[in-house]
Amino acid sequence: MLAKRIIPCLDVKDGRVVKGVNFVNLRDAGDPVELAAIYDREGADELVFLDISASVEGRATMVEVVRRTAGEITIPFTVGGGISAVEDMKRLLRAGADKIGINTAAIRNPGLITDGSRTFGAQCIVVAIDAKYNAEWEEWEVFTHGGRNATGIRALAWAQEAERRGAGELLLTSMDADGTKDGFDIALTKAVSSSVGIPVIASGGAGNAEHFANVFAEGQADAALAASIFHYKEVSVQEVKANLRGKGVNVR
């Protein structure tokens, strides 16, 4: 039976991990490669690198980070952030990334999903969706630019379009839940997961091991992503998995 996946996410700026990381025995807490190797050893099923560099130089540095990471870890990893052309995808995939995450650029140009999927295969293309509940619509709305800009696009319809265009997977972040540590957005995750035929990674709101069990059982997520609770050692990947195993959830 297919296992549910636990995915730590690292924010990387100009080749360095940003947001605090609280690991002991680190030579360098800011080195994404070293952290990636630790998460691999701790049983993470995949990793996501989110490049938040604002400069061309920062993005060029990311290619180097990807190349070094690929030589260190034995699990798949996705790179997202600032990717707006098939050429960008090619550069990162050649450097050793397994999947490419696209968000704002896909909204601006949905053909990017189609082109990426045709060129590299659906399994490479992860469409990231940042969604927030719109009370007027009684539905979720897609936001871009790291959650700053409303698009007027409905999240469920966009998820289905992304699938139709060849996305292999969706990375769904609830802006309502993100940063709260009150748990994943079950309603949003379930609504999206049940309206597409591709895997959905739930993101935003993880505060403890219990929250992962909920998003798999009730939210119908295929994978769950978290950043700060892992970085700050509030809970480890092993603890999350032990909790899930205890509840009969299949994990690696």
Partner: peptide, 8 residues
């Protein structure tokens, strides 16, 4: 879900 994606 298709693709069959993940650890089995």
């Amino acid at each position: 879900k298709i693709p069959h994606m993940g650890w089995n």
